[in-house]
Structure formats: structure tokens, C-alpha cells
Design a binder for these strands. Structure first.
Length: 493
RNA sequence: GGCAUCAUGGCCGAGUGGCUAGGCAGAGGUCUGCAAAACCUUCUACAGCGGUUCGAAUCCGCUUGAUGCCUCCA
């Protein structure tokens, strides 16, 4: 018996524009592909948000008992800064500026990407393929599309024929555009002479002599088009037809539209059942993007070294902040928002830290199974993590009420409650209990317990000067004393 | 200019055709030597203008504004 047999997910499918019941192609199995980063510079927080959304999806699917194959690629092939026929690719440009090999650029920022994701407590994907490792597969796909007559070769480059494709299929089905509108609204760009139409996109580009990243192909020494790698890697590992494809909202058009076209061209069938798009993280009302300079790096959040924030924040605080918004909503990154999340996060952690001390009762004053189901309902409804978190704060209330003797749970109910809290907070939301790690050092606990005893003695003697000194100076080094009915406890934030 | 999405209280951020979101902040109370924490109570809302409806913040239209895409971008 798996949880997915009783917990039914509805998810918003960009393709249909509405929430749909999720039904995997093979029962109990889920194939999910997410477009990964182009590793030409440090991953910024906006990038992280998208990947975090799908990390949460991955975690929840696994929690429900699905066998998930999660593929997230690394784009390590250079792509041109614009879609014109000429231009430098980003990785090559970075390599030139830093006087290193393109593959050194790729290596450096791949390592950075992994480091950052580890700090945010991401689960690794099942497969993390690279574009340059799949050149042969991409060439094979181009051959197929050429054979179908939906692409053409010009001067060693191969382009997808969007108008031809649109005669029998629908280009724009995902982003709700039609080709006529696209034609009317295309900006004039220099150097597009090789294309029959501006809407056509490159499958293969002939490399200029100075272009370092290049591979042989039947058409020229060159490199694959950007959209092709995802088609190659997704279908290789998940099949021609798979369950979920995710990515940032900004990839919807043209990237994902082109992926659909390529998949349809090869197999006469739509490659993906459910398209999921994570919304943008903006900062102070503007898009976070490397190209505009309006962005913050994760390491700057951990160190506090950025003019947009007033202090350092733990990775889990940033994670909690982002999960407090729904993945399909735009989220504005602000210092005030982060401060509010930080307080809430530590309140949640403080409650969890005393969960094991709760005593069970003869009867339950809370219908814990209803509460548990409401947690699942939240996640089942298009992965609504903000609602889930609201329910978890309901759980915080339960913990404190039980501790104060204002609520009760039977032994069995208490076990269910604790297991549910832990599952959602740590397994599904992927938060890390930073306070627990710090306070679990026995030496520190022993020292603080001693100070608490001395303070108790001082209070008994009405030596409040001493007792307050102990309390205040401990607070200054980040240890809070809490006087409860059953004695004094402490926590560290 | 075109397409799409969105517009909620002091701030962040859910949701819904009639019934409490939640967090942070604020107010009052309980507790405390005083605090803090915790608990109880509590205030402020659905951009504007029309329409549909017994009833709309929730559906429709218009207006205004925001964000994204339309050239690489999570």
C-alpha cells in the first residue's frame, strides 16, 4: 500500500491552463525532467527558487511512494547571446574574459551550483546529464527531423522550419501564441539571413573559426542549438513520452515551445503530459537576472554581504521564505520579508525541538488525523506549500498547548503527530533544524544547565541583579532562557 | 506594440460565489520578581467602474497598474 493510492495530486498544467488530476503513464512511476542551469556564472537566488520548487515536488512525489526518475541537466555547451547567426556564446565569452578554457568555466560553475544546492539541502536528481555529453543523440534527432522534412540546412547550419511544422501541428500551443502574431511582432535582427523565417530556430550551428566548443557533424563542425539538448536528454532517459517537464516561467517561450515542436516532429506525439512552470523571484519589484545586475547570490545571503539585506540568513531561512509563497506566484525578495520568515522559521523549529518531551494522555482533544489530512490536502492541491506551512503552524500551536496542559493526545495520536510534523518539515519541505544541531552539543548543554541552576539559586535569594545578568549575557551570545511552569529551558537562534 | 499572468489588511503571502488562511508587526489579558517565550482575546482586506446573481473580494466586461515573455535567461 502506497500513499499515492490514497493521496491524489492535482497539478496545474501550463498546457491546459488548469489544474488536472495527476495520473502517471506507468502507475507508481514518475518521469520528471527539469531544465537545469547554464553554467557560465554563479547560480543566483532566482535560479535557486525554480530548482527548489521542483526539489519540493520531487520530495513530495517520493514521500507518496512514487518511484521517481528525476532528470535535471547541466547546460555546458555554449549558446549564442542572441539568436542571430553571428555572436559569441556565453561560456566562450567568460572563458576569454577569465583567460581559461571553456570547460574550466563549465567545471567551476558546475561545482558552485552543486555547492549552493547542497547548502539549501537539495536532494540530488536521479540523473544529471550534460549537453556536451549528448552531442551524438542531438545529431541523431536532427537527422530525424530533416528526414521528416521539418528542418533545412543552410551553409552548414540546420534550422527547424516553424511554418512547415505549423501546417500540421500547432506551434505556440504551450505559450498560447499563434505564428501569425509572432511574425507580426518579430523584431528586426541583424544577421538572420540564413533563416527562411525569423521564427525558425537553430538545431545545429556551424562554428565560426574562433569558436572553441565544436563538434563534427554531417553538416559542419559546429554545435547544437539550445533547445535540442533538453529534447535529447529528456527522451533518452525518460522515453519519448514522459510525465512531467518543469522549468522557469521564462523558459516557456521559446525554449519549451521548441521542445514540444522537436518532440512532435520526431514522434508525432506530444512529448510531455504535464508542463509545470515555476514563477520568477523578483527583488524590490524587478526581475532578478544576471543580465540586469538586479540579483543576489546565495552566498551573499549566508554572509549578509549584500546591500539589499541587513544581516546574514541561514540557508533554511531562505528556503522557508521561498516555500512560504506558492511556486506559481511571483515572489518579491525583500529584507523585511526575510526577517518575518526568519522569526516564523525559528518559532517552528523551537516547537519541534520540544516535541519529544511532550507527554501523552488518556484521551485526545485534537482530531489529529483530520489535521494530518489537511497537510496532505495542501500539497495535493498543486503543491501548495504556503497552506501546508499554515497547517504546520497549527501543529506548533498543538505542541505548545500540549506542553502547557491545554490540549492532549493519546500515545498513538502523539506518535502520528510527531511523525507527520517531521515528514512534512524535514522530508518534504527539506528544511534543516539548525537550532537542534547547535543545542545538541552536550558540553554546551551542560554549561548552560549549570548557569540555569546558578540563576535559579540567585532568584531564590532574590538576587535579581545576578539572575538578570546571567539571562541577559547568555542572550547576547545567542542563548535564550525560557522560564516555564516546569523549570527553565533554553534555545539558541 | 503583441501575448500571458497577476492586482488581497501596516508588511509578506494563501484561498474561496454565502462560513477563521497562516507568518511578521500592533492592541488587551494570563503567566513572571521583571522580562522573554508560550497561551487566550482582538483590530485593519480583497485596485477602480459597470454587469450576472437571492448573494461576489470570488464569475463576466471595461479601466488602471504590475510582472514575465516576444533576443540569452530559472
Amino acid at each position: 500500500m502506497h500513499l499515492f493510492q490514497t493521496q491524489h495530486i492535482k497539478l496545474y498544467n501550463t498546457l491546459s491552463g488548469q489544474k488536472e488530476a495527476f495520473k502517471p503513464i506507468n502507475e507508481g512511476h514518475v518521469g520528471m525532467y527539469v531544465c537545469g542551469p547554464t553554467v557560465y556564472s554563479n547560480v543566483h537566488l532566482g535560479n535557486v527558487r525554480t530548482f527548489m520548487s521542483f526539489d519540493m515536488v520531487f520530495r513530495y512525489l517520493k514521500h507518496l511512494g512514487y518511484k521517481v526518475r528525476f532528470v535535471r541537466n547541466i547546460t555546458d555547451a555554449g549558446h549564442l547571446e542572441n539568436d542571430a547567426d553571428a555572436g559569441e556564446d556565453r561560456i566562450a565569452k567568460k572563458a576569454r574574459l577569465e583567460e581559461i578554457e571553456p570547460m574550466e568555466v563549465v567545471q567551476r560553475y558546475t561545482v558552485d551550483f552543486h555547492n549552493i544546492l547542497n547548502k539549501f539541502n537539495f536532494l540530488p536528481p536521479s540523473i544529471e546529464p550534460t549537453a556536451t555529453g549528448h552531442i551524438i543523440e542531438q545529431i541523431e534527432i536532427i537527422k530525424t527531423i530533416l528526414d521528416k522534412g521539418l528542418a533545412y540546412e543552410v551553409n552548414g547550419s540546420v534550422y527547424f522550419d516553424v511554418l512547415k511544422y505549423n501546417e500540421t501541428k500547432q506551434y505556440g500551443i504551450l505559450s498560447k501564441r499563434n505564428v501569425e502574431d509572432l511574425i507580426h511582432n518579430t523584431r528586426e535582427l541583424d544577421g538572420q539571413s540564413d533563416k527562411k523565417n525569423p521564427q525558425d530556430f537553430a538545431l545545429w550551428k556551424k562554428a565560426e573559426p574562433q569558436h572553441i566548443m565544436r563538434w563534427p557533424s554531417p553538416w559542419s563542425d559546429g554545435f547544437p542549438g539550445w533547445h535540442l539538448e533538453c529534447t535529447a536528454m529528456s527522451t533518452k532517459y525518460l522515453g519519448d513520452h514522459f510525465d512531467i517537464h518543469g522549468g522557469g516561467m521564462d523558459l516557456k517561450f521559446p525554449h519549451h515551445e521548441c521542445e514540444i515542436a522537436q518532440g512532435e516532429a520526431c514522434n508525432d506525439a506530444s512529448p510531455v503530459n504535464y508542463w509545470m512552470h515555476a514563477n520568477m523571484l523578483i527583488m524590490n519589484g524587478k526581475k532578478m537576472a544576471k543580465s540586469t545586475g538586479n540579483f543576489i547570490l546565495p552566498n551573499e545571503i549566508f554572509s549578509g554581504d549584500n546591500p539589499h539585506i541587513t544581516k546574514a540568513y541561514a540557508p533554511s531561512v531562505a528556503r522557508f521564505f521561498m516555500l512560504q509563497a506558492h511556486y506559481r506566484s511571483i515572489l518579491d525578495f525583500t529584507n523585511n520579508g526575510l526577517l518575518a520568515s526568519e522569526k516564523g522559521f525559528y518559532r517552528l523549529m523551537d516547537a519541534i525541538n520540544i516535541m519529544d518531551e511532550l507527554k501523552s494522555s488518556e484521551s485526545s482533544s485534537i482530531t489529529i488525523l483530520d489535521w494530518k489530512q489537511s497537510c496532505y490536502d495542501a500539497m495535493n492541491d498543486d503543491f501548495n506549500s504556503p497552506i501546508l506551512i499554515a497547517n504546520l503552524f497549527e501543529g506548533v500551536k498543538f505542541i505548545n498547548q500540549i506542553k502547557e496542559g491545554n490540549a492532549s493526545l493519546t500515545h498513538d495520536d502523539l506518535e502520528i503527530f510527531k511523525a507527520t510534523m517531521n515528514a512534512f518539515v524535514f522530508d518534504i519541505l527539506g528544511l534543516v533544524n539548525v537550532t537542534k544541531v547547535e543545542t545538541s552539543t552536550d558540553k554546551l548543554s551542560g554549561a548552560v544547565e549549570l548557569l540555569i541552576q546558578i540563576r535559579q539559586q540567585a532568584r531564590a535569594n532574590k538576587d535579581f541583579a545576578l539572575s538578570d545578568k546571567i539571562r541577559d549575557e547568555l542572550a547576547e551570545v545567542g542563548i535564550q532562557l525560557q522560564d516555564g511552569k516546569e523549570g527553565t529551558t533554553f534555545s539558541t537562534n
